[in-house]
Write a protein that binds this DNA or RNA. Structure first.
Lengths: 250, 250
DNA sequence: CATGTCGTTTGATCTGCATCAAGGCGCGAG
DNA sequence: CTCGCGCCTTGATGCAGATCAAACGACATG
């Protein structure tokens, strides 16, 4: 199956056989239901840095990330910002039953979203209980991720935060990507130092310093702009402060 | 309607007319559905400090807080702890479809929970879509609260954190409680300094110092053990760093 | 009444990260 | 080629909150 840059193609053609679809809100939809979703969906593309919606603005759709990365952030009056959500392909954005967005939604990289008009989506949800069930599952997963994130923000050191972030992205991303032969893990971390600092509750200088430290110690290597290589994943894991086993859900 | 200490009484008798019921997972249940829930429910009481379940332990029920306060916490190997959930009356605990608890669940005060055996609860959920819908709503609310909490953990100063916590409890709690004539807000903050520090990602010494500071400045007053009086709520709100309007959901 | 325990307060000192500041590197445009 | 811009790195310094330490008040127990 050849993949083309998504424009206005059926969701099913786009993702039906790929891992993304199996994690998305429509994971268990088939036949008629999928057709109904087709009717109300449309794609939107954004360039890295563009804002999808501002906190407080009207948001008349819900959406699912097809390619790229989106972030949810909150801003305080004086400009302090905290990222509160990181959406990778298959992740869901928007809240049924709410008019406006509670967060700034921003494209961290070039981004394609598959949007569903909200009102009809809600109607389909009511008719099709398993969409609601799937959404509940996804929301519970997100809540677990948020709680893991709270531990990171409240109790981890800068070094542990950086190591954790790299591991989190590696786990989510690398599963869809290539896995080098020598056991090293190669993937790209498509976040600026500033985005990382907003994720971690640090300043960008601290992020830069800690990245340099991990690099000097050989725990990570960087190639070119944002390619990261982890020679030994378990070694990096030990720097996260997490339990060696279990740990992250999602 | 006289209230008695809950022992083994029907959920409906216990809460049908009180604000708790209207926020709980069974908010929209009636007749048969409520009867079905009656069949599978039982109360459990805990003393302040007791553990309801440990992270990783089997948890074969879901539950809703009737009276008292429960907390969800995560612990790192070296003992650092972060609270990730604070459950007040009507709040829901437990995840359908998961065998074990992901968090330590602890009684912060004397606590009564209304438990539903998990398997039958899941069955009822499948038969009764609006329970799932209600649970989705509640989970989305919790996710919003978690994200507000992340902003607090990542970006607020110790002083702002304390002020925020007091306002959060006051809003949730005071709505069920008395409201003094002179515009002052009186309620009890039934958390130890240690519990507060676990909530806020601080040490208990810092919590104590900041509480003293707010007291000296007259922003709060304390009466006896844990009674708190807020002479001017708006004044305290300004110390939270939040937008003056909107702000907390839930 | 002395003794112990638990939660809390307060003081003295230390330190990890923020803040302020200056360059460096890659890249596209003129 | 040079200039400017976006992003990143590194250095010097300061401070908020952690850590270590002591003692207090309330309350229970022998």
């Amino acid at each position: 199956m050849t993949r083309t840059t998504p424009k206005i193609q059926p969701y099913s053609q786009e993702c039906s056989d790929c891992p993304i679809r199996h994690r998305a809100v429509c994971a268990r939809c088939e036949g008629e239901e999928l057709d109904a979703l087709e009717q109300i969906k449309y794609y939107r593309s954004f360039e890295a840095g563009q804002t999808v919606v501002w906190a407080g603005d009207k948001m008349d759709f819900v959406a699912s990330v097809v390619t790229g990365i989106a972030t949810l952030s909150q801003t305080m009056e004086d400009g302090r910002r905290q990222m509160v959500g990181l959406l990778l392909p298959s992740d869901f954005a928007g809240r049924p039953g709410r008019e406006t967005s509670a967060y700034d939604v921003t494209a961290a990289t070039d981004l394609v979203m598959c949007c569903f008009r909200k009102k009809p989506f809600e109607d389909i949800m009511l008719r099709t209980p398993h969409i609601g069930q799937r959404l509940l599952e996804m929301t519970l997963d997100e809540l677990d991720a948020a709680r893991e994130w709270m531990l990171l923000l409240g109790r981890k050191t800068a070094r542990e935060k950086i190591a954790s972030l790299i591991c989190i992205i590696a786990r989510r991303d690398a599963s869809l990507q290539l896995n080098a032969a020598d056991g090293a893990l190669r993937f790209d971390l498509p976040l600026t130092r500033e985005a990382m600092s907003e994720y971690l509750g640090l300043t960008l200088e601290t992020v830069s310093r800690q990245m340099s430290a991990l690099r000097k110690e050989g725990l990570i290597m960087t190639e070119g702009k944002r390619q990261i290589v982890i020679p030994d994943f378990d070694l990096l894991l030990e720097e996260t402060g997490d339990d060696s086993d279990g740990g992250f859900l999602v």
